[in-house]
Amino acid sequence: MSDDTVSLRRKVKRAAHLLLFKHHMDPGVKGWELRRLLGPRYREVIQLLDAELKDLDLTVKIVSEGGEGEEAEGPSRSRFYVTMREAPTMSEAKAMGWRVDDLGALSATLTYILSRRGKAPRSEVEEMLRRKFPEWKVDYNLGRFVRRGYLAEDKDKILYLGWRTKAEIDQKKLLDLLLGKEA
């Protein structure tokens, strides 16, 4: 095995450690951090790691501040995450700690905000949720979705899609399924 190959293997392991274990408050690693820790060829290292994670149904996902992909800001300002390659089953989602009605509330919230060009006043979202879910859970759930990163909220109480939605949710598929375009 050449020195280059040994070095590359070591970097793939290092990349796996960086991406799979939380080092900050939120998961994921910025492109510039990967460049600093893995060197200028860090994209090759990430591609190799992605190929190895495929067998485990995992993948490396790159998300820019603006959304999925890295074209908008360049790779060094994007954030890299390891996510499940396929969607989980409902049983798996429940085993991850989700309650079905909370998933339903998040689904309604995200589709509502997506249909409003990615933002909506909190009061309108609350009104929409109150028609379907117990009133006492609406405020608690919205707070939890903000804390977990599915939503972001500004000082004017406008809700936006959060970093976790951009990292975890296939927004196009979500809307298609809502409209029944995809079985």
């Binding site: 409902m90 989700w98 079905v100 689904s107 249909s115």
Partner: peptide
């Protein structure tokens, strides 16, 4: 937006949850 609201109102929480789960790829942490 109006069509979305109609669809949200017409689906029960379980159906909404299933839609989300099928579009979800959770981050490992």
């Amino acid at each position: 937006p109006v069509l979305t609201l109609v669809r949200i109102d017409s689906l029960d929480p379980v159906a909404l949850a299933e839609i989300l789960v099928h579009s979800m790829h959770p981050v490992t942490e």
